[in-house]
Computed example of a mutant assay.
Amino acid sequence: MIDHIDHIVLTTHNLNQCIDFYTRVLGMQLESFGNNNERKALKFGNQKINIHEYGKEFEPKAHLPVPGSIDICFIASIPLEKVREKIESENWEIIEGPILRTGAIGKITSIYIRDPDLNLVEIATYNQ
């Protein structure tokens, strides 16, 4: 019945810091949409992350939307070593990894960082 995830919603304390991290550090593309382009999203591949600012969420929303509550894994389109180099070049701390884990369709190697709202961001590549 379900094929894939189209988008998720991330709640942030600081819209500008959130956008900066996901565009500058992770290379996502910013999209503005809605009436007067007041809504923001981060696009990558065939997915996106809609951004809600804490206290100014759009309806409908999660029951208790709070910053820092997401634990998400992204699959990289480049080798994990290149991801690590990019993150380090942006002076962003890697808190763990590389480490072996299990992804949705097999074994992955992951590194972990935190975004400005302290969400846990795992970036991985599938092992060949």
Rank of each mutant, 00 (worst) to 15 (best):
F58Y: 10
P67T: 02
A62K: 10
S110P: 03
K61S: 13
K40Y: 11
C73F: 04
L42P: 04
G45T: 04
N127S: 10
E81H: 07
E59H: 12
I123S: 04
G97K: 01
E90C: 14
N91T: 12
A124D: 05
R24D: 11
E81K: 15
I113P: 03
G68N: 05
G27Y: 09
T109W: 05
E93S: 08
E122N: 09
P65D: 04
S110V: 02
I95E: 14
E88G: 02
I5L: 11
L26M: 15
P79D: 11
I111Q: 01
A62P: 02
T109S: 12
D6M: 05
D6K: 12
E38V: 14
L10H: 03
K56W: 08
I2W: 03
S77I: 05
F58V: 13
I87N: 00
I123V: 13
S89Q: 09
R101H: 09
Y126K: 06
I95T: 15
Y126T: 03
N46E: 12
G97E: 04
L30V: 08
T12G: 03
T23I: 09
G55T: 04
E96K: 15
F44S: 06
L80W: 04
V83Y: 04
C18I: 07
G97H: 02
H7E: 06
C73Q: 05
T11E: 07
V121I: 15
G103Y: 01
G27F: 05
I78Q: 13
T102F: 10
V9D: 01
K107E: 15
I72V: 15
I105R: 12
I87K: 02
G34H: 08
E122A: 05
E38A: 14
I113N: 01
K48E: 04
R24A: 10
T109Y: 03
E96N: 15
G68L: 05
G106N: 08
V66W: 03
P116K: 08
G55F: 03
P116V: 11
T12L: 00
G97W: 07
Y22Q: 02
E81I: 13
Q128C: 10
Q47Y: 02
N37T: 10
E81N: 12
I5R: 01
Y54A: 11
F74P: 02
K43P: 00
K40H: 15
G68M: 06
E38W: 11
P79C: 07
V121P: 00
T125A: 07
Q29Y: 10
L26N: 04
H7M: 09
I49T: 00
G103L: 02
I111L: 09
Q29A: 13
I78R: 10
N14I: 07
N35R: 10
T11M: 06
T11Q: 02
I49Y: 00
L26Q: 00
L15H: 03
I72E: 01
F33W: 14
G68I: 02
K82Y: 09
R114P: 03
L80N: 07
R101Y: 04
F21L: 05
